[in-house]
């Protein structure tokens, strides 16, 4: 009898949680619905009637995006840029994070400070000098301009360092006692072990660089190396007469690959984050 009552109470609890989460989800999802709704509404109907319902379905906005910008090229560029940044970050940041968290050397604390401070500097502060530097090397309008400034990522180092700190020192220590050189330890222990953390910062790095709008619009002037958000720039309202329809269609097309990727990689992502936020021991 009591277990039955307990079961009922627990079911009510479960239903209550679902309802509460659903209420919160309205807040999380409403902007997405508005984006989709606007992107699928005929241009002359966007402002008429109820802005919540889709009554005049049309693909005109998408047709215009595909007609006006080389979207496939943007997708390809996006993958190249994001992929290269990720590989570069793995090569540069994993060894550095390992050294900063698990090796003892003079200047480690200073190095740590530099990394943490660099993580907090807003990148608008350094935009113009970096632009000048890139142009000196003829990199404006190239993929290099989108990739190079982000390879030495302080945030990735921070994330990876948190992760390494959560691994018992004894693991590294035993290898060292066995006579393994730091490089060997790096390749045979650190890299394989850091996989979950690498996946995490990989996904975060992917999300932020795929979606980045400011930097591409700052260093690019043509479509050669342009990534997807660059396409939205064309439809932004700098002057009177905003093109909300194509703008939202472009935004939807930007987010789409990420959402699909996220749904596929969700389990891995969450497992990875669990490892890197200093919890696993």
């Amino acid at each position: 009898m009591t277990t039955h009552a307990g079961e009922t109470r627990s079911r009510i609890m479960q239903a209550g949680i679902h309802i509460a989460l659903a209420a919160g989800a309205v807040f999380m999802l409403l902007p997405f619905w508005l984006m989709l709704r606007t992107s699928f509404t005929a241009p002359d109907q966007i402002f008429s009637g109820n802005v919540l319902t889709l009554t005049h379905f049309s693909l005109d906005n998408y047709a215009r995006v595909f007609a006006e910008v080389p979207l496939l090229r943007y997708y390809l560029n996006g993958f190249v840029v994001v992929g290269t940044i990720f590989l570069g970050q793995v090569v540069i940041c994993v060894p550095a994070a390992y050294a900063l968290s698990r090796l003892r050397f003079a200047g480690r604390e200073l190095g740590l400070w530099i990394v943490l401070a660099a993580m907090m500097v807003p990148y608008h502060a350094t935009a113009i000098p970096i632009y000048v530097l890139l142009s000196q090397f003829g990199l404006i309008n190239t993929h290099g301009a989108l990739i190079l400034p982000f390879i030495g990522s302080a945030f990735s180092v921070f994330l990876l360092r948190q992760f390494f700190l959560s691994i018992p020192q004894s693991v590294f220590e035993s290898a060292r006692l066995d006579g393994a050189s730091p490089y060997r330890i790096l390749i045979h222990i650190v890299f394989p072990m850091a996989r979950p953390a690498i996946i995490t910062f990989g996904i975060l790095s992917f999300v932020s660089h795929w979606n980045d709008y400011f930097w591409p619009s700052f260093v690019l002037r043509n479509d050669f190396a342009a990534t997807v958000p660059f396409g939205i720039v064309r439809f932004l309202d700098q002057e009177l007469g905003a093109d909300y329809g194509p703008q939202m269609a472009a935004a939807t097309l930007t987010v789409l690959p990420l959402l699909i990727g996220f749904l596929i990689a969700q389990r891995q992502l969450i497992a990875g984050i669990a490892m890197s936020s200093g919890q696993v021991d």
């Binding site: 113009i128 632009y131 000048v132 142009s135 000196q136 720039v233 700098q238 002057e239």
Partner: peptide, 23 residues
């Protein structure tokens, strides 16, 4: 011809960056 949909003020910023960069 290099086109973008920015205000003329923003375009001036790009030109400024170009001037500094020598292009």
């Amino acid at each position: 011809l290099e086109l973008d949909n920015r205000s003329d003020l923003d375009t001036t910023q790009k030109v400024l960056a170009d001037i500094v960069a020598g292009t």
